[in-house]
Amino acid sequence: MNSNKMRVGVIGVGTLGKHHARLYKNINDAQLIGVYDINPETAKKVASELNTKAFQSLEDIADNCEGFSIAVPATDHYKIAFFLLNKKKHLLIEKPIASNLQQAGEIVKIARENGLIIEIGHTERYNPVTDFIDGKINDVRFIEAKRMSPYPPARHGKEPRGTEVGVVLDMMIHDLELILHIVKSKVERVEASGISVLSSSEDMANARITFKNGCVANIIASRVSEKSIRTMHIYQPAKFISLDYANKTCTVFSKDNSSIQKEEIPIVDHNALQKELTTFVSNALSTIQTGKTAESKVSGKIGLEALRLAVKITEEINKHNKKYGINDKVYSPNNIF
């Protein structure tokens, strides 16, 4: 066992978790110790493919690792994070941080009190497109974001992936976190609507957010689309920036006297999830070696604020539906403070 590497494990090795496990093996400072899944056969299959160990229990894998990726359904984030944080483990938790605010707040509190790293899996912050806009935008007046995908495939004995929560917590929350990062202003007002189509909660949602600095963001999310779309348009005086997170392209339109100049920005591509995992390992190792908690790019506090806004949007959808006599179900996190 290499003491210069962080011993990592992955909890939940379904669609996304198996990629976490695979990519950890490519990180120089990480040593993948093993995986755990509630389905032992899934764990064994992934462990065999990656030449690692399939642990039989959460307790067993916890005793052998210093840090973990948690890639289980959102409704299970809290119980696993609570268990591992109390064992002094560093965590990368897939978004959302938890399925309600009380649980999210407790996760942040325990990590802070114990000097532990928690990184929340808002992977778009590591998308190479985001590298361009960081530090290069100012006085943003309006943002339009669209995130759409086909409905997730059926799974034997389980809900389709992500549908344990509504589309706001499943998909829109990516854009909410990005927009909070870009605008850097408090929210003044939220208007929202949404409907269920195929699942037991909202599958389509639209939100209009007005910030205290006057910026307005309009966001559409759908998991019942014919094709996948992940775009964002950012408007500021004399400039319009068009971002495509899926195709990793960025175009800037600028006013030049009486004409409009179009500039295609060269994007240096990289694997966003790989970069996210590498950053998590680096921060956790630094914390272990120095005793000083490193600063996460998407910390638990940031994940909590994104969830807080997402919860507000679900509340507004429920108000809208009640006002107009719409009986569609909307995912409503409990224990909100």
Rank of each mutant, 00 (worst) to 15 (best):
K184C: 06
S185N: 09
S185W: 10
S185V: 07
K186P: 00
K186G: 08
K186Y: 00
V187G: 08
V187N: 07
E188W: 04
R189Y: 05
V190R: 02
E191W: 12
E191Q: 13
A192T: 02
S193K: 01
S193D: 01
S193R: 06
G194V: 08
I195M: 12
S196N: 14
S196K: 13
S196T: 06
V197F: 09
V197D: 07
V197M: 05
L198Y: 01
S199W: 07
S200E: 15
S200Y: 14
S201K: 05
S201R: 00
S201E: 02
D203S: 08
D203H: 15
D203N: 08
M204W: 03
M204H: 07
M204Q: 14
A205G: 10
A205N: 11
A205F: 00
A207T: 05
A207N: 03
R208M: 09
R208W: 03
T210G: 04
F211W: 11
F211T: 11
K212M: 14
G214K: 05
G214H: 08
G214R: 05
G214F: 14
C215W: 11
C215G: 01
V216H: 07
V216L: 06
V216N: 03
A217C: 09
N218C: 03
N218L: 07
N218K: 05
I219H: 04
I219L: 13
I220C: 10
A221T: 13
A221M: 06
S222T: 15
S222Q: 06
R223P: 06
R223G: 15
V224S: 13
V224R: 04
S225T: 07
S225C: 11
E226S: 14
K227Y: 10
K227D: 06
S228C: 08
S228F: 14
S228R: 15
I229N: 02
I229R: 14
I229Y: 11
R230S: 06
R230E: 05
T231N: 11
T231G: 04
T231F: 02
M232C: 14
M232E: 15
M232V: 08
M232F: 01
H233T: 12
H233W: 11
H233E: 11
H233V: 13
H233R: 10
I234L: 15
I234C: 11
Y235L: 09
Y235W: 12
Q236V: 00
Q236I: 02
P237H: 11
A238Q: 10
A238P: 00
A238Y: 02
K239R: 13
F240D: 10
D244C: 03
D244H: 04
Y245K: 03
Y245M: 09
Y245P: 00
A246S: 05
A246R: 09
N247A: 11
K248T: 10
K248C: 13
T249S: 15
C250T: 10
C250K: 02
C250R: 01
T251R: 14
V252I: 15
V252R: 01
V252E: 14
F253S: 13
F253M: 12
